[in-house]
Every structure is written in structure tokens, then in C-alpha cells.
Design a protein around this nucleic acid. Sequence first.
DNA 1: GGTTGACCTGGAGTGGGCTCCAGGTTGCAT
DNA 2: ATGCAACCTGGAGCCCACTCCAGGTCAACC
Lengths: 139, 139
Amino acid sequence: MIQDELTGAVTIGEASRISGLPIETLRYYDREGLFGELPRDAGGRRRFTPDALGLLDVLLRLRRTGMPVEQVREFAEYVRAGDHLRAGRLALLRAHRERVAMDLAQLQADLEVIDWKIAAYQAAEDGNDPPPRDSMTTN
Amino acid sequence: MIQDELTGAVTIGEASRISGLPIETLRYYDREGLFGELPRDAGGRRRFTPDALGLLDVLLRLRRTGMPVEQVREFAEYVRAGDHLRAGRLALLRAHRERVAMDLAQLQADLEVIDWKIAAYQAAEDGNDPPPRDSMTTN
DNA sequence: GGTTGACCTGGAGTGGGCTCCAGGTTGCAT
DNA sequence: ATGCAACCTGGAGCCCACTCCAGGTCAACC
């Protein structure tokens, strides 16, 4: 039984394929409480409902953008707690958003310098003049 | 003696202030061979030459963009080895560049979704309609 | 010449995030 | 009913990148 035809819930293996995360990691996340009370089938196996999968997609993005697991758990809890805590949820997300935006800017700047380095090496390789815009020394 | 007036070399403490890295981390990097043969003063203290500082700036960018320490060491070695290995240097940098570009794209996509989530929560808070463009479920 | 502060070493410890057992069910398919 | 694949648990182990000792040296200033 891969998919519950009625509810659309899937097994952990399927969830793994969908999300790209190893099964072990999904279990780890579950242990850490990221999914709250994940439903189980008669045999005790986890059933990832469409809701859980949707949540997982968001959690994954939070993780990928560098939010620590503990904070992701907090966020997931807010979500589960429902509407009256939306303020906390929003605040958490907003704060994170700022961090990510800064990381992004830093990453872009670093990438630019790396690209410039590549161009410089390439030029030297070809015996041409190095490109302009030095950021520091030329190694 | 903070700066050697003749060579422009600085102490580890100064290098730490310049780079923003803790002294401990600089020593760790040195142990890992990122700087190769770092010059020492009469008393055995590390002297960060302008060259070393310039290199450090690049290494730092590589680290920030997610290159593992071991690979950074490899790169630094190429640099030290001089011109005849420039091809390896270039290849390593190019490969890394691709990875970073992909990370960047992923980060941008994730940030977009997070922003959309924020907007959705905000709208719900205000009692307005949620914004368009759903990526998955609405939690 | 004694105190102070910045430096040194080798090595142990830490934290986050998985990742991997061992040993045990479950349930479809022969 | 026997095999097999996919699931389960509790707990140990691992990797990376630091981070933190303890105990010592060195140079400059009072």
C-alpha cells in the first residue's frame, strides 16, 4: 500500500521519494517533533497525509535556508497550534526572512568575487591582461 | 607590535579583527594547512603577511559559499604551488562556482516561498484575501 | 624584576544534524 | 506457511567545523 486512495496519505518511503530526504532523516525529524502527531496505520507505520507533505515542503525550505531544526520545530508547533498564535509565527518567519536575505546578498557578493577570480586565472592562462576590479590581492 | 612597518605583516589578533574570524579558527585553519608555511617572528608567533591576508579573504569566501575545509586546503595548495597547476585550480573553482550558483538559485526560490507565506499570513491576519500563486498546501 | 597581555602547543570537548545498527513487526505474494 | 520488502524502535556512532582547555613563552611596561 503506497497511497491511501481515500485520504491521499503515503508511506514514509514515498514521502522520502517525494521530498528527496532519506527515510532516516524523516524519522529523525519526526522524533524531533517537526510533524507533531503523525497519524499511523493499523500496523504502526507512519502515514504522511497531504497536509503533512505540504508542511514538510515548507519545513524543508526553512531548513535549506539555514533555520536550525529546533526553530523549525517551534514554527511547526505554531502552525499546529492554529490561528491564535499567528503573530508568533509571523515574527519568526519575518526574522528568518531577514537573515536569509542577508545570506543571499553575501552569497551573491562571494560568487561575484569567485567569478572574477576565475576570469583572472583564465586570462593569465591565455596570456591576456587580467580583468579590472581588484577586491584585494591577486593570488 | 601590531604591524610590521616594513612588510605590512600583522599578528593573529589583528588578522582576527580584520577577517572577523576568531583567533581559534585562524589557528585551526593554519593547523589544517590552509596557509601553508605561515612565517613566524623571532618568538614563534604567526605573522600574517599581506599575501596571507589576501589569500585568507578568498578562502573565507570559499568557506562561506560552502566549500569544505579540506577542499579549501587543496585550493590553497594549488595557489602556493604556483603557475603550472593553474588548470587544477581553475577546474576546482569552476566546479565550485556551479554548485554555488545552484545553491543561490535554490535559496532565491526558497526565499520567495517564504515571502509568499508571510504575505499569506499577513493577509489572513488582516482579514484580506490571501495572495495568489500557491506552491503547495496552505498551512 | 615582576606583572600583564597577547601569543604559543597538543589535545580534548562540543554541537548540530544526521546516519547507522540490531533486533523485531507487518503484510502482500508465491 | 514461507519468503521478502518495507516498515518499526531505542540507542549508538559519526562527521564536520570549530571551540575550549591547561600549561607554557615572550616582550613591554611600571
